[in-house]
């Protein structure tokens, strides 16, 4: 877990965040510091430790298979930046 491997441009692309060159440089350095700091977790031997996903565990949480009212068509699209023919649209996806 070395921060040499940290390529901010690649990761920002993966996260779909466009950064200016100035941001890349500044944030890259800051994240380098932070990733360096979290290296301290390597000091601990955790080979026999179970991971904790939730500190207060419950299990088998389900809901009955029942239909419940949702949003009206108008409510559902009220916040949408671009709607055509009742569909939320983006520029054409090329596959």
């Amino acid at each position: 877990m070395s921060d040499d491997a940290f390529d901010i441009h690649y990761v920002a692309n993966l996260a779909r965040i466009e950064l200016s060159q100035e941001e890349e440089a500044r944030m890259g350095a800051q994240l380098g510091d932070i990733l360096g700091y979290v290296e301290k977790l390597k000091e601990l031997d955790v080979s026999d430790v179970e991971p904790t996903a939730h500190a207060y565990p419950v299990k088998n949480v389900t809901r009955p298979d029942e239909v419940r009212p949702g949003l009206s068509h108008e409510e559902a699209l009220a916040n949408s930046p671009r709607v055509v023919n009742g569909l939320i649209t983006v520029p054409k996806i090329v596959e």
Binding site: R68, G70, N85, G86
Partner: peptide
């Protein structure tokens, strides 16, 4: 009868964006 995580109907052929709620959107 309903979707995986919310109570919207699992129904084929409804008008677009009518079986929707905050969860599945």
């Amino acid at each position: 009868k309903s979707k995986m995580w919310c109570g919207c109907a699992n129904e084929y052929g409804a008008e677009p964006n009518t079986n929707v709620c905050p969860v599945c959107m």
